[in-house]
Design a protein around this nucleic acid. Structure first.
Lengths: 239, 239
DNA sequence: CGACCGTTTGATAGTGCTCAATTCAAGTGG
DNA sequence: CCACTTGAATTGAGCACTATCAAACGGTCG
């Protein structure tokens, strides 16, 4: 799994708005430019970091799609989340200076490496950046809350609908179509994430299709009736 | 629900070690002493903060026991966690400056109020404190990961066993017995947290008791065979 | 083209849920 | 002090949803 390393700054990065939003004064831009140490390219199926691996940096996804996977003692594994461009990953490693999950690329990906000690330094100097980091972590906590809600109180249909709606929303926020998406993960990975078996995922897709809610061609999903889909899956909290 | 407010400093707090660990130089103790603005006492059943309420502070639990509860659009609610003395709550509110869940006392409780702007200030001045806050948030993320794993891949028996073991471990870390505990929550709240119905929780308790793993008298639980219990529930990741 | 992986679909079994009745513990008020 | 009320917990019977096992299909890539 070959990986390349490049040198780059945030100030002239095209996707800056998504991961490090605007709003710093010009004065601080130079400090922010010191944030990224390098980039890494990960091939499809490649691993960004392993469970147990020493923690040293957070990563901003520039392109590509990742899954977060957690192993259990008895050999089972569960997907605990999917990440796409613009999102920051690796926050789990801060507590014990070790990562506690595997981060695996579902397609060829590029990430910016943000060494944690630099994050600490800049946080102390740039108030807006400090707040940004806190908000990132807090957002992650809130997101996980919603996953817990999903896994703890929804049925298969509701879970899958909520999953599709969540994906759609995140893609739409990144400028993609709001009625069409291509799944980057297998049915098994979706099932693992939703606490279902792959057969159940497949069946539920078929049922949705039969009822005219969506159109399914392999991993290509077309939303036909977003309204109805919402009614099935959107039990999420509004905030 | 009457609540009292008192003024106090961390440096001479008996339970300091649990929420704000030692290790700051003497020089910084005075800054830390400025962290707590007041204390609040919450009666059993009282609410520390509501979903939607403006966020202004984190809270350190001095005494008492809380549950975190999330409401769904269609009126259902789910418990997403239980918190005990020494733990820090309210981290969910940072992202959007509003709390996204309800925090409810399961027994009379006392909390220290830590205004968020003071946390920001001290974080910038005391490196060890900054790191402490980051670790708190990261720990919360890792904990939630484990809950997701529990809900997504364990069966009723495993869930309840893991739940008991987790509680025991946290109580033991606080100096309580490692073979005996009193549940502060109802079967329904346990069920909600574990993604089960209260009847299932009750039945599973009974089964454990029948098999000699534990002894159940209402909310009083006696561990008889922790080893066996571990084998049932401990599929958690080791880290 | 053929092999392989992922997906779909069917039949059956099992786990946990629903509905309902009963027991238990702790107040509450006469 | 005891009958009464109330909320929580236990237990049972039947059912619904999802898992499991199994087979067939389809797209992709060597």
């Amino acid at each position: 799994m070959r990986e390349e390393t490049k040198k780059i700054a945030c100030s002239n990065c095209s996707s800056r708005t998504s991961c490090i939003p605007t709003g710093w004064g010009e004065a601080h831009l130079r400090q922010i430019d010191n944030l990224i140490s390098s980039r890494r390219s990960i091939r499809r199926g490649g691993v960004l970091f392993y469970n147990g691996e020493p923690f040293s940096a957070l990563y901003a996804i520039r392109t590509g799609f990742f899954k977060t996977s957690l192993g259990t003692e008895d050999g089972r594994a569960q997907v605990t989340g999917f990440q796409m461009a613009g999102e920051i990953i690796g926050l789990d490693g801060i507590v014990n200076a070790r990562h506690t999950c595997d981060e695996i690329a579902l397609e060829d990906a590029d990430v910016c490496v943000m060494p944690y000690d630099r994050i600490e330094d800049i946080s102390r100097e740039v108030v807006a950046f400090q707040r940004h980091i806190h908000r990132l972590m807090s957002r992650e906590i809130v997101r996980e809350h919603r996953v817990v809600l999903l896994l703890g109180s929804m049925r298969a249909e509701e879970r899958l609908a909520a999953f599709l709606l969540d994906l759609m929303q995140r893609l739409q926020a990144r400028g993609f179509s709001n009625s069409e998406l291509i799944l980057r993960m297998t049915r098994e990975e979706i099932g693992s994430y939703l606490g279902l078996k792959l057969e159940t995922v497949s069946r539920t897709f078929s049922r949705f299709a039969q009822e005219g809610l969506i159109e399914v061609r392999q991993r290509h999903i077309q939303i036909r009736d977003g309204q109805a889909l919402s009614q099935r899956g959107y039990r999420q909290i509004c905030y």
